[in-house]
Design a protein around this nucleic acid. Structure first.
Length: 109
DNA sequence: GTTGTGACATTAT
DNA sequence: CATAATGCCACAA
């Protein structure tokens, strides 16, 4: 069951369109496991490199990068996000004028 | 078995 | 804005 859950999470993450973002909690909900945001984080950490998951599109609540500022992964994620046209300022994705982050968040139909 | 830690979230203070 | 308290669950010691 545990391994299945990881696959579901991976597939959910893969489905995030380029240039859009999602949150850990949001992914968990979309994967049918509300309240299990931490599991999403674990799934990403445990993900094989071969999957080429767009893990950089997964952010913490409020569009904040979940890594410690200055860490290697932090810089890497910011770099990749900027490569997709998103603006990253002080560890968070800057939404241009949008009232809520939900406007940038990936909303599955 | 228990405990502490962690790519988290939400609510309350 | 920042902390703290909970809830959540996988994993390592």
């Amino acid at each position: 069951m545990r391994a299945e859950a990881l696959e579901i999470i991976w597939r959910t993450v893969v489905a995030i369109p380029r240039g859009e973002i999602a949150t850990y909690g949001g992914i968990a909900r979309r994967a049918g496991m509300p309240g299990r945001a931490r599991l999403v984080g674990h799934a990403l950490k445990a993900a094989p490199a071969g999957l080429e998951l767009p893990w950089h599109r997964v952010l913490g609540a409020g569009g904040r990068i979940a890594f410690p500022k200055g860490s290697r992964l932090y810089a890497e994620q910011a770099r990749r996000l900027r490569a997709e046209g998103l603006e990253v300022v002080d560890g968070r994705v800057r939404n241009s004028g949008a009232p809520d982050l939900d406007m940038l968040l990936w909303k599955p139909q």
